[in-house]
Structure formats: C-alpha cells, structure tokens
Design a protein around this nucleic acid. Structure first.
Lengths: 114, 114
DNA sequence: TTGATACTTAAGTGAATGCTTCAACATCAG
DNA sequence: CTGATGTTGAAGCATTCACTTAAGTATCAA
C-alpha cells in the first residue's frame, strides 16, 4: 500500500487479530506498550510495529512521558469505518425497501392493507 | 494470511479501495462480473481475483447462469464487522460514562444536581 | 459451425506484511 | 555511576498481495 485513503488504513489495521486485541485492550483504558505486549505471544518489537500501524491508521494515539508510552483509542477512525459500513447497509436496506414496495404494489396476492 | 477468523477476512477485504467500490456498486443492486469490471482501471482477471477475496470473506455471493455470473452483497459479514466496531465503541463509551460518573462523584466543584 | 462473449485459470513479478534478532537509547532507582 | 526498565530502530526473511499477460472453457447468436 503506497498511497492510501484513511479507510484503507483503518480496515487494514483492523484486519489483523493481534491489532484487534490491542484495540480491545485499549477500549478498557489506556495502556503502556509493555501492557499491550504482555499477553501477546511475540516480541516487543513486533508489538511496536503493530502499534505503528494502528497509529498511522488513526485508531490509536499515544504520548510518551518519562520512558513510558501511554496509548489510547482514538474513536474518530473507528467511527469512520463504522460509518462506511452503516452507509452501505442503509443503501442496501433502502433498495430492499423499494423492492419490497414494488413487490407489494405489483403483486398483491393477499389484499394490501388499505 | 493462512488461518483466519471471519473478521480478519472481512476487514482485509474492505481494506482495498477497489473492493470497496465493488461492494458500493453491489449495494445498488446485483451486477455481473463485467459490470463490476467496467469502471475499474484493471484487467478482468484482477477483478475476478478481488471478487474471490470478497466471496471468501462472505461479503458477496454469486451464482452463474449461462455464461454470466451475477453477484450480490451478503449482509452477514458486513454486519459482523460493523458489530465488532460498535461493541468497541460501546465499551469505550461505557468506560467514559463510568469515568464521568466517578469524576462527578469525586470532584463536585459545582454543586451536583439533587 | 463459427465467432464473439463472459468469464476462468495459471504463472510470474515487484512491493508490502508480519515477524525475528540484535543493537541502541533514554529514564529512573539505588 | 551502574544497572534495570521501557522502548526504539535497523536489517533480514518467508509469505502474502495486487496486479499482469497469456491461455484456457463454456455459452449463446447467427
């Protein structure tokens, strides 16, 4: 991926189970990099790389104080991803509603109400 | 990716702009492979490969009649992805609510109502 | 039957991904 | 200062990705 829209980055970041676990952990509250790494069966280095993906996607923010980096969920990118899906669902439902209305109007095999 | 959970496949499929365009097109109604390929700046072959990713993720179904394959959105995987995000958002909001309540209870710098 | 249409499949290529290890580096406690 | 802690960075490696081209296979129309 060399030139991405925000949604590319967000969905890509969420496509990895390790990164989803990290987000799940962070929804419970802020955590250090070590906290995030502790339950994960991989090196610190790998966790930091996953964290970078999450940050580049705008799903997570972090700030370093002393030697500890504290990470938090950033809801904006998460909401954007959710919104894209919801919009598609609404587009589909709208279409299905129109189809339903069409079928109702066209083929009233039982008497239509009113 | 060699051993994936459904969400891995769904988010991965959605992380590509071409595949999102295909889903967007399909939310407007069923389409053939050629219909899907027509606006896209790549070979049919590439489109078919994208379609396979969408189908493996459970986002799209298709059936072939004659020489035409007709594709449709399958809402189940889409809903699952949406649900994962919504759950994280709710988890966060719940946490923020509790934090808010805690702050209200702990530091009533203005008089609490009641 | 012949040709055009609508896909399908295989093989190949360069770039990106998900790790690893090893070597830094900057706090902070004692 | 000295060591332990918490993180950061670079390099390397096997795999997966997003395409391409080229060669199929059905199906339908004439």
């Amino acid at each position: 991926m060399l030139q991405h829209q925000p949604l590319d980055l967000a969905f890509h970041a969420l496509s990895d189970p390790t990164r989803r676990r990290m987000v799940e952990r962070l929804t419970l509250g802020p955590a250090s990099v070590s906290d995030l790494a502790e339950p994960l069966p991989m090196s610190m280095s790998a966790v930091v790389q996953h964290l970078k993906v999450l940050q580049d996607a705008g799903l997570v923010t972090s700030e370093k104080v002393g030697r500890v980096r504290t990470c938090r969920v950033d809801t904006h990118a998460l909401s954007a991803a959710e919104r894209w899906i919801a919009e598609r669902r609404l587009a589909m439902e709208g279409r299905l509603d129109r189809l339903g209305a069409f079928l109702d109007a066209t083929k009233p095999e039982t008497e239509p109400r009113e």
